[in-house]
């Protein structure tokens, strides 16, 4: 399959939007009920941090991009994920969940994910990252955002997510196009790169960090009322998109993450009892200060549409 990345890059540039395009004081903030607020706050905070982690994922991908155009695309995606996080912070601010200049405290699992990304994303080969990111985008962004829009009727929120969803449709399209390109590469390189995913420090980082991160969020949102069917649909989207390309199917990392996604959504799978749940407990107790100072990139989020 031939992909036209140049046209995609042009579209991405054309579709840019800014927080300043949104009227953050428009009526509708009052539609958030006091009952919704505490849970919604946690949900939004998780969402913000997932976007930020996604942003860094794209930054790491940009360094490994197979062509200059794809690199440019990833640079935009990096910025767009940051924009999503900023816009979601602005929504939180609008809903009275944040003080001036405040950024919500990340959970310990998020902190660990940030730490791993900061320290190991350079060791992660292109195939690993390029597979992990669409899974996160499909499963989390897809399911979470649909759920949010069902729960919240604030028109400003809907306006913001029209922009975000439009961006995400391009992210997911490119994610899978790149996987197709990568999958078309020589088998030997894929084996080498997959072996790199399996390097102990990388694999351990992935397991210890992403397994509990995913599970905790999964359980949080299910507790908030997200139907498991929605999660299931999101993963199905990842799998059906990926499986459509014979090249993608050849990527070992893809097969690996596909299995993991299936296990995550199926709460009866032994994966939860034996791996994920204990890891959530374990990481909950993890003293975050051991991770040291958070990297400065994680402090660049802002809910202010303009900066002077």
């Amino acid at each position: 399959m031939a992909h036209d990345f140049d046209t995609m890059l042009r579209t991405i540039k054309d579709k840019q939007w800014s927080l300043a395009d949104v009227d953050w004081d428009a009526p509708g903030a009052e539609t958030i009920t006091d009952e919704q607020r505490p849970k919604l706050k946690q949900f939004m905070a998780d969402l913000v941090w997932i976007e930020n982690i996604g942003a860094m994922g794209f930054a790491a991908l940009a360094d490994k991009a197979p062509t200059e155009t794809i690199k440019q695309i990833y640079k935009y995606f990096h910025a767009e994920e940051q924009k999503h996080a900023n816009a979601e912070l602005a929504l939180m601010k609008r809903w009275g969940m944040l003080d001036d200049g405040e950024t919500p405290e990340p959970t310990v699992q998020v902190k660990m994910a940030i730490w791993v990304l900061d320290n190991f994303s350079d060791d992660m080969p292109l195939t690993g990252l390029a597979t992990l990111i669409p899974m996160l985008e499909c499963a989390l962004d897809g399911a979470l955002v649909k759920f949010l829009l069902d729960e919240v009727s604030d028109p400003v929120c809907h306006e913001v997510f029209r922009h975000i969803n439009s961006d995400e449709s391009r992210h997911i399209a490119v994610d899978f196009q790149v996987l197709d390109v990568v999958g078309a590469g020589p088998v030997r390189r894929q084996l080498i790169e997959s072996a790199a995913v399996l390097k102990p420090q990388v694999l351990l980082g992935l397991i210890v960090v992403f397994v509990p991160l995913l599970n905790k969020m999964r359980d949080n949102i299910v507790a908030m009322g997200l139907s498991e069917q929605k999660l299931y649909n999101a993963v199905k989207r990842f799998v059906s998109n990926g499986d459509r390309s014979a090249n993608t199917r050849r990527i070992p990392a893809y097969q690996m993450f596909k299995q993991q996604a299936r296990m995550v959504i199926d709460r009866t799978h032994p994966y939860h009892r034996f791996l994920a749940d204990p890891l959530v407990k374990l990481t909950n107790a993890f003293p975050a200060r051991l991770l040291g100072k958070p990297p400065s990139w994680s402090k660049e989020l802002t809910h202010e549409p303009v900066d002077r």
Binding site: Q16, S18, A79, E80, Q82, K83, N86, V306
Partner: peptide, 22 residues
């Protein structure tokens, strides 16, 4: 290092969604 996508009346708009007013 965010890509610049436009100039507006008061500053520079970059792809992370912020207007840098100068």
């Amino acid at each position: 290092t965010w890509p610049i996508y436009a100039l507006s009346a008061n500053g520079i708009r970059t792809a992370e969604g912020i207007e840098h007013q100068v």
